[in-house]
Amino acid sequence: MKTYKEHLKIANLTLDGYFNYGNVLQRYAVCNLLMGLGAEVESLWFSPQAGFLPYLQSHYPWMKDSWDWKTWVKLGINWKGITGNLFSGQNAWESARNAGIKSFVDRYIPMRYDVDFAKVADEYDYFVVGSDQVWNPNGDIDFSYPFLKFSSPSKRISYAASIASPEIPVKKKDIFIEGINGMKAISVREQAGAELIEQLTGRKVEVVADPTMLVAAEKWREIARKPSWLKGDEEILTTYFLGKRPDEVINRLAMEHGLKVVNILDEHVFEHYAVAPEEWLWLIDHAKLMYTDSFHGTVFSILFRRPFVVAERIGDGCVNKMTSRIDTLLGKFGLEARRGTKENGYMIDTPMEIQYGDVEAMLAKDRQRAEAYLRRALDLDKK
C-alpha cells in the first residue's frame, strides 16, 4: 500500500500566461498549499503552445501555426520591420513585464509545459484546477481542460475556482453542467459561484479563501525583492490600478506626506510598468499608503497590514466586476471604511491611519477550512 507523503502526485491547472500578477501568485499559492500537505506538485500548462509564437500571434493575429515554409521565408525577409514594431514602445515594455513574470514562474513554480493530455491521466493521483477565473463561460477556453475531462472523475478536484459571471450562456449551459457533475470535489472562491452551481445542478459546493491569503506574510516576504531603481530610503505611496487612477487625489496625498509615488503599470514610466512579481510584493509591503482598485492589491495590503484605500474601478464602459468580491473581503476584516468611491472623491478620512483587528485569527480559520476541504477531497484521512 503506497504511503501518501512518498507517492501522492498532484497536477494543478489554472489560466495560462505571464500577463497578470494575481494569476501567477495564485498559481504559486495553490502549489504551495498542496505541497504543504506533503504532495509532489506540478503545474501544467494546457494552452496549445507556450513561448514566443503565441506572443506574436496575440499581437499579430495574421500569424498562423500552419504556415508553410514559403511563408516563414517571407517572415525572415521582413523580420527587421516586424521586430522594429514588436520591440519598440509599449510592446517592448510589455515584453519586459512578461519576461519578469515568467522569470518568477521559472524560479518558484514547478511548471510542466510538454504535456500530452491524451496520456497524462495516469501520471498523477489527482488534478486540481484553480484558482482564478478558470470556469468563466464568456471566454474562448476549451472547457475540457478546466473541467479536467482528460482524467477520470475520481481525480477531478477544484480549489477556489471562479465562474466570474452571473449566468452561463445558453449555448454553454449543457457543457458547464456536464463539467460540474463530472468533478469529484468542488470549491469556489465566491458565494455567487456556489449559488449558481447549486441552481444549475442542485449540488452544494464549498466556498474557500483565495489561495494567496493562505500563504503567511513572512513567506511572501521571503521572495519579495526591492526594485534596484528605488534608491535610498525613500518613503513611497504605491498604486496598483487596472482601471484609471484618481491621480489628483493620489498626488495631493503624496505631496502632503512627502511620499514618492510609484504607480505600478504606469504606461509613462518603464520601471513602474515592468515590475517583476517579487518587486510587486515589496512595493506593497513597504508602502506608507497603498491605493488600488484590485482585489489582490487589497489582499496583499491586508496581509502586510498596510494603510490602504481601495477605489471603485474607473473607466469608460468599465463594469466593476470586483465590487462584490472586494466588499466581502473588506467586511470580513471590518475594513469597510477603506472604500474610495466616486461619492467620497476616492478619499477617505485619515487614509494614513488604519486599525487592524485580529487578522491572523481570521486567516488561521481560512487555512483550517482550506486544509480540511483538501484533506477530504484528496482522501487523506483514508490513507
Rank of each mutant, 00 (worst) to 15 (best):
residue 238 T to F: 09
residue 31 C to T: 07
residue 83 T to Y: 11
residue 242 L to G: 05
residue 148 L to V: 03
residue 128 V to T: 00
residue 366 D to M: 14
residue 362 M to E: 13
residue 201 T to Y: 13
residue 144 S to V: 06
residue 102 K to M: 15
residue 163 I to T: 09
residue 111 M to A: 11
residue 49 Q to Y: 13
residue 289 L to S: 01
residue 179 G to V: 04
residue 280 W to M: 13
residue 51 G to C: 06
residue 11 A to L: 10
residue 48 P to T: 10
residue 1 M to N: 13
residue 44 L to W: 06
residue 191 Q to P: 12
residue 171 K to H: 04
residue 170 V to A: 14
residue 152 S to T: 05
residue 250 I to S: 07
residue 150 F to M: 09
residue 218 E to R: 10
residue 209 A to S: 15
residue 294 S to D: 00
residue 261 V to S: 02
residue 274 A to V: 13
residue 42 E to N: 13
residue 184 K to F: 10
residue 22 G to R: 04
residue 29 A to L: 02
residue 251 N to I: 00
residue 91 N to G: 03
residue 361 A to R: 12
residue 137 P to D: 04
residue 260 K to W: 02
residue 72 W to Y: 12
residue 111 M to W: 05
residue 238 T to S: 15
residue 35 M to R: 15
residue 194 A to K: 05
residue 246 P to I: 14
residue 242 L to V: 14
residue 327 D to K: 11
residue 168 I to V: 14
residue 256 E to D: 15
residue 380 L to T: 06
residue 304 F to G: 05
residue 68 D to K: 13
residue 279 E to V: 08
residue 273 Y to N: 07
residue 145 Y to K: 04
residue 364 A to W: 03
residue 53 L to Q: 05
residue 187 S to D: 02
residue 130 G to Q: 00
residue 5 K to H: 12
residue 148 L to Q: 02
residue 78 N to G: 06
residue 31 C to F: 01
residue 78 N to S: 05
residue 289 L to P: 04
residue 201 T to D: 07
residue 315 G to K: 10
residue 158 S to N: 05
residue 92 A to T: 00
residue 160 A to Y: 01
residue 279 E to A: 05
residue 113 Y to V: 03
residue 333 F to G: 04
residue 7 H to W: 14
residue 276 A to I: 08
residue 290 M to V: 11
residue 315 G to Y: 03
residue 305 R to G: 00
residue 148 L to D: 01
residue 154 S to Y: 05
residue 328 T to L: 10
residue 107 R to Q: 15
residue 191 Q to R: 15
residue 97 R to Q: 11
residue 57 Q to V: 02
residue 116 D to G: 05
residue 72 W to Q: 03
residue 335 L to F: 10
residue 167 E to Q: 11
residue 16 D to L: 09
residue 213 M to C: 11
residue 242 L to N: 02
residue 36 G to M: 06
residue 101 I to S: 06
residue 84 G to F: 07
residue 65 D to F: 15
residue 241 F to Y: 14
residue 238 T to W: 08
residue 357 G to F: 09
residue 370 A to V: 08
residue 233 D to S: 15
residue 143 F to V: 06
residue 160 A to M: 01
residue 356 Y to N: 02
residue 196 L to T: 08
residue 239 T to K: 04
residue 134 V to R: 00
residue 361 A to C: 07
residue 308 F to T: 00
residue 279 E to K: 04
residue 167 E to L: 07
residue 364 A to R: 12
residue 238 T to V: 09
residue 29 A to G: 05
residue 74 K to R: 10
residue 222 E to S: 10
residue 27 R to T: 12
residue 72 W to C: 09
residue 213 M to S: 12
residue 340 G to C: 02
residue 369 R to L: 14
residue 382 K to V: 12
residue 335 L to A: 09
residue 379 D to M: 08
residue 193 G to D: 14
residue 22 G to I: 00
residue 318 C to Q: 09
residue 113 Y to D: 02
residue 183 M to R: 09
residue 316 D to I: 05
residue 275 V to E: 02
residue 334 G to Y: 03
residue 43 S to W: 02
residue 257 H to K: 12
residue 3 T to W: 14
residue 320 N to Y: 01
residue 273 Y to P: 05
residue 326 I to G: 11
residue 71 T to A: 13
residue 284 I to E: 01
residue 301 S to Q: 05
residue 221 R to W: 06
residue 176 F to R: 07
residue 55 Y to K: 09
residue 32 N to V: 02
residue 213 M to I: 09
residue 57 Q to F: 05
residue 299 V to H: 04
residue 79 W to K: 08
residue 201 T to G: 07
residue 253 L to A: 08
residue 109 I to K: 01
residue 112 R to D: 10
residue 21 Y to H: 12
residue 119 K to L: 08
residue 280 W to F: 15
